[in-house]
């Protein structure tokens, strides 16, 4: 419990900053919506500015941007990038930061099992992610009520879209953890996190342009592509299973590696 409370104190501030930034992101996007929805010609203008391949890359094919949900899809993509960066930062840092800050030997000589350290840290990171997630639900709800431009929308599709976010976060958390445990030392958490999050995003976006189906199995941006909730009316079960499998495997592997890790101390 001590480790948990120590960790959560650390993470709480960061979770707050992420929640506020995500709120601002949704606010920014949705505040543009009313002017957008009233004028069909603006919609056409946007189509003119975005070549179809670009729409594909942004996961906007088959989506009518003049509807609330269509417009939100666009915002969702950027929110996903932010969620990916946040979860990767947590994933890469929670287990590796002690070694980098030379506090690992202090922590691990305490009379507790390593598994307990592992689970406390994991629980703290998870709490922070859930807080951000919940804040995002709140921001979405608020901004949708404020800026729906008088258009009707189906809350169920939004709920569906947001409900898989937690899997999305866990994917990056888990993968971050297992990578941080498989390398000797992580010097800069940020480079790894940006690399993982943006790498996945770019694989997904450029994969859509070139229409490569196989690429979609490696990137969570494809598992939960926002527009598929509209065009296909739900999520792809196969993708959910792949994602869940990756999460389970990566977190167990990280656990296994952490338990036997040779801790490098200050010498």
């Amino acid at each position: 419990m001590n480790i948990y409370s120590r960790e959560i104190k650390d993470k709480l501030k960061s979770a707050m900053i992420w929640s506020v930034s995500l709120f601002l992101l949704v606010l920014l996007f949705m505040s543009l919506y009313p002017s957008f929805a009233t004028d069909e010609s603006i919609f056409e203008m946007v189509l003119e500015n975005y070549p179809e391949v670009m729409l594909k890359a942004m996961g906007m094919t088959g989506v009518n941007m003049a509807t609330v949900i269509g417009f939100f899809t666009f915002c969702m993509l950027f929110a996903q990038i932010c969620f990916a960066v946040q979860a990767s930062i947590y994933g890469f840092s929670i287990l590796s930061e002690e070694e980098r800050d030379m506090t690992a030997d202090f922590l691990l000589t305490k009379p507790i099992r390593r598994s307990k350290v592992f689970f406390s840290k994991l629980a703290a990171a998870l709490t922070a992610l859930v807080i951000t997630n919940a804040a995002f639900w709140g921001s979405t709800y608020l901004c949708l009520s404020l800026f729906n431009g008088g258009h009707k929308y189906d809350p169920k599709v939004f709920a569906q879209m947001l409900s898989v976010l937690i899997l999305f976060q866990l994917f990056f958390l888990g993968v971050g953890m297992v990578i941080s445990m498989s390398v000797k030392k992580i010097k800069s958490v940020l480079s790894y996190s940006m690399g993982l999050a943006f790498g996945m995003y770019i694989v997904s976006a450029s994969g859509s342009i070139i229409g490569e189906e196989r690429l979609s199995y490696i990137t969570p941006f494809k598992y939960f592509e926002p527009n598929s909730f509209i065009t296909e009316g739900g999520y792809d079960t196969a993708m959910i299973i792949i994602c869940a499998a990756v999460i389970v495997v990566s977190i167990s592997a990280a656990f296994f590696l952490y338990n036997r890790r040779n801790i490098r101390t200050a010498s």
């Binding site: 070549p51 391949v53 943006f198 770019i202 450029s206």
Partner: peptide
């Protein structure tokens, strides 16, 4: 309307222009 004039994906110029946006980001 679809902007194929700027980015014609069947030509090397159009294709590179499209995907290079991501390279720029990286």
């Amino acid at each position: 309307a679809f902007g194929f004039e700027t980015f014609n994906i069947t030509t090397l110029t159009g294709f590179t222009g499209l995907v290079f946006t991501y390279m720029i980001l990286i």
